[in-house]
Nucleic acid binder design. Sequence first.
DNA 1: CTTAGTCAAGGGGTA
DNA 2: TACCCCTTGACTAAG
Length: 310
Amino acid sequence: MKIGYPCINYSIGKKTISTFRLSSYSEEKLIQSIKYNLNTLLEILNYNIDHNLMFFRISSDIVPFASHPLCTFNWQDLFRTDFKKIGEFILKNNLRISMHPDQFVIINAKDKNIVERSIGELEYHREILDLMNLDNSAKIQIHIGGVYGEKELSKKRFISNFDLLSDRLKKRLVIENDDHLYHLNDCLEIHDELGIPVLFDTFHHECFGDDLDLIEAIKKVDHTWNHSKDGIMMIDYSNQEKDKRKGKHSKTLLLKNFLEFIRLCSFTDFDIMLEVKDKEQSAKKARKLLDQINNDSTMFKNKIFYYKES
DNA sequence: CTTAGTCAAGGGGTA
DNA sequence: TACCCCTTGACTAAG
C-alpha cells in the first residue's frame, strides 16, 4: 500500500505550482512556469521518497493553459528531455502517479463544444504521462459528469462519447464515484460496458450512500482493475470537516477513522490518496500509523490503538 | 508592503 | 435569481 497526497507540498518552503492569468499570457511566462513546475515536482518527489510517500497526484496546472486555443507553443518538444528524466526517476523509485482533471471536464455534456474541450483537456493530461513514459498504471481520474435531469440517458452518452477518446487515453482513464450525482453502482455499470476501472472514493460513498456496504464495495471495485495492466486499485480517502456542509473535506486526517478503514479493508491491497487540506502532513501521519501496524500485528487483534498524535 | 477581489472552462444545490 | 461548492490556491490590481 502506497500513501499519497494531491498536487501540493507545504513543507518544501516554496510554492508548488506556478501559474498566471490568461490575460497576461506570454510564451516566455509559459516557459518559465513549466520550468519551475518541473523542478518543483522533482523536489516534491524527492521529499516523498525521503518520507516513504510513494503515491502522488500531479497538478493539472503543471503546464498552464495547455489545452487552451491560445497556447500554440510546442512545449512538448522543448521539455521532452525533462519529462523523460522525471519519468525515469519515477520508474526507478517505483512511485505511483495519478492526475485529476478539474470539474470542467465533462465527457457526457450535451453541448458538443464542451465535449470537445473536455477531450482536449484529457488528451493533455495523457500527454504529460506519456511524455514521462509511464505505463498505464498511471491513471487519469474523472467523474461521470452531468445528469441533465435524465441520468440513464446521460450515462449512455458517457458510454458513446468514450469512443471519441484516443486508445492511449482510454487505457489511462478511470471513473470515480462523486458525492451527489453518480454513485458507485453507476460507475460499476459503466465499467461493465467499457471495462474501465472504477476509482473508489470512500468519502463520496459515505456522503452519497446507496446501501452498499464498504467491504462489499471495495470487493466489487477491486474486480474492475486489471492488476497486471492497471496496477492495484487507487482509492481516494478523506473525512468530513466537522460542523461544515456535508461533503466538505477535512483539514487534516482523522486517524481513528483512518485506522478503522484500514482495519476493515486490509483483506486486499490498494494505493490510497489522502484528500485533506494539510497534504503531506496527513500523509506522514498515515504512513507512521501503517508502519506501526506493520511492526505490531497484535494491534488489530487486540484493538489496542495506541497511536498518539504528535 | 498588505490585502481583497478575481481567475478558461460546467453543473447542481441551496438560500 | 444569485451565489456557493467542487483538488482552492495564487495572481494581480488597488490601497
